[in-house]
Simulated scan of single mutants.
Amino acid sequence: MERLSLACLCLLTWSGMTSADGNGRVVVKEGSDALLPCSLSTERNIIGELFDWKKDGQREVFMYEPGVHYNNGRSGQDEQFKPRVSHFQDELKNGNASIIIRNTKVADSGNYTCVFPHLQPQSQTFLIELVVGPILKDRRNIPGAATEPYITTIDQTNNWSLLQCLVRGAFPKPKVEFKDSSGNVIPAPEPQVSERGGGGYNVTLKATVTKTDTFRCVVTQEEIHHQVYAETYVFLPTPPKNGAAQKMSVKILHQTNDGILLQCEVEGAFPKPKVEFKDSDGNVVPAHEAQVSERGGGYDIILQATVTKTDTFRCVVTQEEIHHQVYAETYVSPKGFPTGWVVGLLITFVISLVGGGLAVHCFWRSKAKKFKEGSQTERVPL
Results as ranks from 00 to 15, higher is better:
Cys114Val: 01
Cys114Ile: 01
Val115Leu: 03
Phe116Met: 01
Phe116Glu: 01
Pro117Val: 02
Leu119Met: 04
Leu119Asn: 04
Gln120Asn: 07
Gln120Tyr: 02
Gln120Arg: 14
Pro121Gly: 01
Gln122Thr: 05
Gln122Asn: 03
Ser123Trp: 15
Ser123Tyr: 14
Gln124Ala: 07
Gln124Tyr: 04
Thr125Ser: 15
Thr125His: 14
Leu127Ile: 13
Ile128Pro: 04
Ile128Gln: 11
Glu129Tyr: 07
Leu130Arg: 00
Leu130Ala: 05
Val131Gly: 06
Val131Ala: 09
Gly133Phe: 00
Gly133Val: 01
Gly133Met: 05
Pro134Tyr: 00
Pro134Gly: 07
Ile135Tyr: 09
Leu136Arg: 14
Leu136Ile: 14
Lys137Met: 03
Lys137Arg: 09
Lys137Ile: 01
Asp138Glu: 10
Arg139Tyr: 13
Arg139Met: 14
Arg140Gln: 10
Arg140Phe: 12
Asn141Lys: 09
Asn141Leu: 12
Ile142Asn: 02
Pro143Phe: 08
Pro143Ile: 03
Gly144Pro: 00
Ala146Leu: 10
Thr147Trp: 05
Thr147His: 03
Glu148Phe: 00
Glu148His: 00
Glu148Trp: 01
Tyr150His: 09
Thr153Met: 10
Gln156Cys: 12
Gln156His: 04
Thr157Glu: 12
Asn158Ala: 05
Asn159His: 11
Asn159Gly: 05
Asn159Cys: 02
Trp160Thr: 02
Trp160Ala: 03
Ser161Met: 06
Leu162Glu: 13
Leu163Val: 12
Cys165Glu: 10
Leu166Glu: 12
Val167His: 06
Arg168Asn: 10
Arg168Ser: 12
Arg168Ile: 10
Arg168Pro: 02
Ala170Lys: 02
Phe171Ala: 15
Val176Asp: 05
Glu177Asn: 06
Phe178Met: 10
Phe178His: 12
Lys179Cys: 08
Lys179Val: 07
Ser181Tyr: 07
Gly183Asp: 05
Gly183Phe: 11
Val185Ser: 08
Ile186Lys: 08
Ile186Val: 13
Pro187Glu: 12
Ala188His: 02
Ala188Ile: 10
Ala188Cys: 08
Ala188Met: 08
Ala188Val: 09
Pro189Gly: 11
Pro191Gly: 00
Gln192Glu: 12
Gln192Cys: 00
Gln192Asp: 06
Gln192Met: 03
Ser194Met: 02
Glu195Gly: 03
Gly198Cys: 05
Gly198Lys: 00
Gly199Ile: 14
Gly199Val: 14
Gly200Pro: 04
Asn202Val: 03
Asn202Tyr: 02
Val203Cys: 08
Thr204Asp: 00
Thr204Gln: 06
Lys206Leu: 09
Ala207His: 03
Ala207Cys: 05
Ala207Gln: 04
Val209Met: 08
Val209Ala: 08
Lys211Thr: 14
Lys211Gln: 15
Thr212Val: 01
Asp213Cys: 05
Asp213Ile: 02
Thr214Asn: 13
Phe215Ala: 15
Phe215Tyr: 15
